[in-house]
Design a protein around this nucleic acid. Structure first.
Lengths: 136, 136
DNA sequence: TTCTAATTAAGAATCATTACGATTTACATT
DNA sequence: AATGTAAATCGTAATGATTCTTAATTAGAA
């Protein structure tokens, strides 16, 4: 997702354009990889020494709920990245070194068939972990 | 996995048979579902009021490293259960209400093919979440 | 039984995350 | 441009899960 689209969504939902939100979104826009709240705070405290975790987490939650960011859990920490623009459902390879991702155009739910009769499926998770070509 | 097999593995690796380990393994053996460290501690403190988190976590880590337990993360907490005995690789449906699982005999890695050329794949995760028939 | 290394207890420390009251800011309205 | 108001942020404290530390206890070997 790009910045204008993200702001469009925020404005549509009545959220204000603040300098903190701008910088958070810029970081995600520039770095196409998974970041933690700490990653963001460390960088942002250079420009805004008073930046607090509360602001980071609150905005991350907002962005995720609006579909601007996506979230996953890696080794016990929440990680965030820009939502993909792809129109078709897909999954991700995630580099455990640099956090970059690669889309994988396969969804295992296509092969579930009748394996779960009368089970109520809410959601699913499929991720592949390893090292990307650049990190080997 | 059953208790004798678990103890066999522990003995092979030089671990001692303690009453705490016995009770932890019994809980997993009886309850075929995901439990948290807190779940275990709450029950065990009835028999051992002095039981500490440290003991729970240390043993859980041991069991996971020996392949006796498997672990996953659900809504920010680590959950543990007995390792499946199935000889073939598979994945799980996990009931978000009761923690019970159902094996799903499908692995998406079978369909990855050449989608990730020169990527070094370390592992993968595929889980389906929802409500089991009993919890609906 | 004794010895020794493994294990546990007890509680403090750490880490990520959330909550809260006070202050500041964006922005619609005048 | 000044004002009003809800939203957003700050500063800090609280929480909850997990890990660490040191001293005491215990399982199993000798």
């Amino acid at each position: 997702m790009n910045l204008p689209k993200a702001w469009e969504i925020l404005k549509e939902n009545g959220f204000k354009e603040t300098s903190k939100r701008q910088q958070i979104l810029e970081m995600f826009s520039e770095d196409d990889r998974y970041l933690t709240a700490r990653d963001l705070l460390d960088v942002m405290q250079k420009d805004y020494p008073s930046m607090s975790y509360d602001t980071v987490y609150r905005n991350l939650a907002t962005f995720v709920s609006l579909g601007i960011l996506e979230e996953t859990e890696l080794s016990g920490e929440r990680h965030f990245r820009m939502q993909c623009e792809s129109d078709h459902h897909h999954h991700h390879f995630i580099c455990l070194d640099c956090g970059k991702i690669k889309e994988v155009p396969v969804c295992p739910m296509d092969m579930i068939g009748a394996a779960l009769p009368s089970y109520q499926i809410a959601n699913h998770k499929f991720e592949i972990y390893g090292k990307c070509p650049e990190c080997q």
